[in-house]
Design a protein around this nucleic acid. Sequence first.
DNA 1: ACGTTAACTGAACGGTCGTTCATAAGAAAG
DNA 2: CTTTCTTATGAACGACCGTTCAGTTAACGT
Lengths: 200, 200
Amino acid sequence: MPRTTGSHSDITGPRIQAAATKLFAREGYAAVSMRRIASEVGVQAGALYNYTPDKQSLLFGLMHDHMLALLAAVPRDTGPDPVARLERFVAFHIRFHHDRPDAVFIAYMELRNLSEQNFAVIEGLRRQYEDLLEDILRDGIAQGHVETADTKITTLAVIAMLTGVSTWFRESGRLSLEDITARYWELVSGAVGARVSAPV
Amino acid sequence: MPRTTGSHSDITGPRIQAAATKLFAREGYAAVSMRRIASEVGVQAGALYNYTPDKQSLLFGLMHDHMLALLAAVPRDTGPDPVARLERFVAFHIRFHHDRPDAVFIAYMELRNLSEQNFAVIEGLRRQYEDLLEDILRDGIAQGHVETADTKITTLAVIAMLTGVSTWFRESGRLSLEDITARYWELVSGAVGARVSAPV
DNA sequence: ACGTTAACTGAACGGTCGTTCATAAGAAAG
DNA sequence: CTTTCTTATGAACGACCGTTCAGTTAACGT
């Protein structure tokens, strides 16, 4: 019996995305069937194809949306102090990733399940994000407030370090997110040789 | 036509492990079928069950062997200088993980595909490895050569940073493994506030 | 009141999955 | 040469896969 009370198009769509995000993150893209996503939404499998052309596009849509949200939310302030900008970047990254653990998990665990073209798109967006951090580091070096030998490697190392938080953070844990952000800022600022005050 | 020239038991076993490692790393546990592993080995699917009771045990065996190899190879030197021990740990981690990219990938991407008991075993071994690093940091603090606020968080952050190398390192890249090791030692020693010489 | 359409069902498609097992044949033991 | 054991085949099991589609019904435009 279709169309059971009310028009659902604007509700079912987001519910499918939510269910797919949750299940892909928990069990992996390949291990989750369309039927299982449908049953989570409370619908038959065929209905999913009103919202996505196929399973691959469903995955890509989730990752694409996530990367766009990341790039839209990241602070692009161009304040005079690169160390302060770096600190804001660190706090933002931890907070943003903490708020969407499932999407984060998918975005870096399911890359291999993307088709070649879709992978290239996501990789490009990821590169844009990395470049924002690298720009901060370069500014810091130029102003003598940061000291690191290879900005590309440092960028990748810092992001790996920060993203790692979501693999172990539990709300019920010993430390609050603010505590953790403070600890990571100590680690990052030490790693990049950040100096709060004047250059040499 | 079974037993086609020569006895294969001691050859087929390792070949199955090698094929499974390669395929699981490249495409993921759930996406690789037993038939595909068998065909990579040059054998029919049924033959795999002379070497593993089921697919889950095959995965667990790979991860278990990897973790045991890691714990067997990690330097446990108890030299007097914690900073030197930390430097050796960093170099070891990068080298060891570089030498087995497939096993590393599996060990931290396929955790969710382990049964509950198997997961607990692997998690315990991982914890042992982390504790070795945390011990070094604590010794460093005790001797005043290291300065970091929370050794547990620092441990996780450093390992995440180091393991990240294998996600982007290419043999043909701009930097050699030695270069990268040097850069990461700068980052780690800075992050933990390592001092080469005497305490306060 | 009525035709149109958006939203969904439920069955079906060919194919693949993990696993089992009777059977066969080369290797080893006597 | 015969027996026994090891190693593998290949067919079969029921279950599930992604995807398609004709049919059904509730809501909407007029």
